[in-house]
Design a protein around this nucleic acid. Structure first.
Length: 276
DNA sequence: AACGATCCCTGTTGGC
DNA sequence: TGCCAACAGGGATCGT
């Protein structure tokens, strides 16, 4: 599941293949990936012939400057990844979009479940999209404990639900949120408004630590499909996870078995002894 | 306004 | 072994 560390790792991997290069070919193999493009015919036309500028990121969105004022948006959904391959390299069966620059390799968006999407937005379209309503980036613009407190004030939703809400904080997904709550010693089903400032301070610290660790390891590649780095390597963070996917295994801190439950329909892992 | 439920997808998993 | 329902989940949207 690509979350902030996976998207940032992907972004960094794409820079040498895209930055400063003109787009010479665009191929859309699966139109569903363009469902956020106001007019899907615009996608290839807007990329073609234009030069790629800076590659930025906000939360789980990659925002790539194209030409003078266009933004190439890429969201990897839950099973998406970017792949940089040589031309003529064997094509992964779930390749959805291919972009070629004047370099000798090409960039491919691979996404079996097609929950990801891509688009090229004008400034107006960008401003009208949900991207404009994203909260501060959890890595580069982490809110203070007091700012978190103002987000949580009076809210009865589970703290985990609040941390997953991209309008409040952009970048956390199901895996890293569970890790953050474990590190902070807070049960994810606690009503957000019931948390004290010290607990929110702990959550803030944990967000910074968990995301930095995940990024340092190139993200989390689960054993099944999904996320890989653009060069095809796997992220190495899986072995460092404390709770996610570790149902029944011993808590690394206290030895108690990790339990799995559901919060707002999301599978959620926690240590019953370390978190309350 | 706040919050929960549902839908979109398909590879994988688990039960029979 | 083979079949099929259940499951996974980010974000949009709908219903309460």
């Amino acid at each position: 599941m690509p979350e902030l560390p996976e998207v940032e790792t992907t972004r960094r991997g794409l820079v040498p293949a895209l930055a400063g290069r003109p787009v010479v070919m665009v191929e859309v193999l699966h139109p569903r990936m363009l469902r956020r493009q106001p007019d899907p015919a615009d996608f290839a036309a807007r990329l073609h012939g234009r030069t790629v500028g800076e590659l930025r990121r906000r939360g789980k969105f990659m925002l790539i400057e194209v030409g003078e004022c266009l933004t190439w948006v890429i969201h990897l959904g839950m099973s998406g990844r970017m792949s940089i391959t040589g031309r003529g390299a064997p094509e992964h069966p779930h390749t959805r979009v291919v972009v070629r620059t004047d370099a000798c390799d090409e960039v491919r968006m691979v996404d079996p479940r097609t929950f990801g999407f891509t688009a090229v937005f004008t400034p107006e379209e960008l401003a009208a999209s949900s991207i404009a309503r994203l909260g501060p980036d959890a890595l580069t613009d982490l809110p203070t404990a007091r700012e978190l407190a103002s987000m949580a004030a009076g809210r009865r939703v589970a703290i985990k639900t609040l941390l997953l809400d991209q309008r409040y904080l952009a970048g956390l997904g199901n895996i890293y949120t569970d890790e953050v709550l474990f590190q902070a010693g807070v049960a994810g089903d606690r009503p957000a408004g019931s948390l004290g400032l010290a607990e929110l301070e702990g959550i803030r610290t944990a967000i910074g630590q968990v995301l930095a660790d995940g990024l340092e390891h190139g993200g989390t590649s689960l054993d099944d499909l999904a996320y890989l780095l653009p060069d095809g390597r796997a992220g190495r963070h899986l072995q460092y996870l404390s709770v996610y996917g570790r149902e029944g295994k011993a808590c690394r801190r206290c030895g108690a078995p990790i339990v799995r439950g559901r919060i707002n329909g999301r599978s959620s892992y926690r240590c019953p002894a370390c978190q309350d």
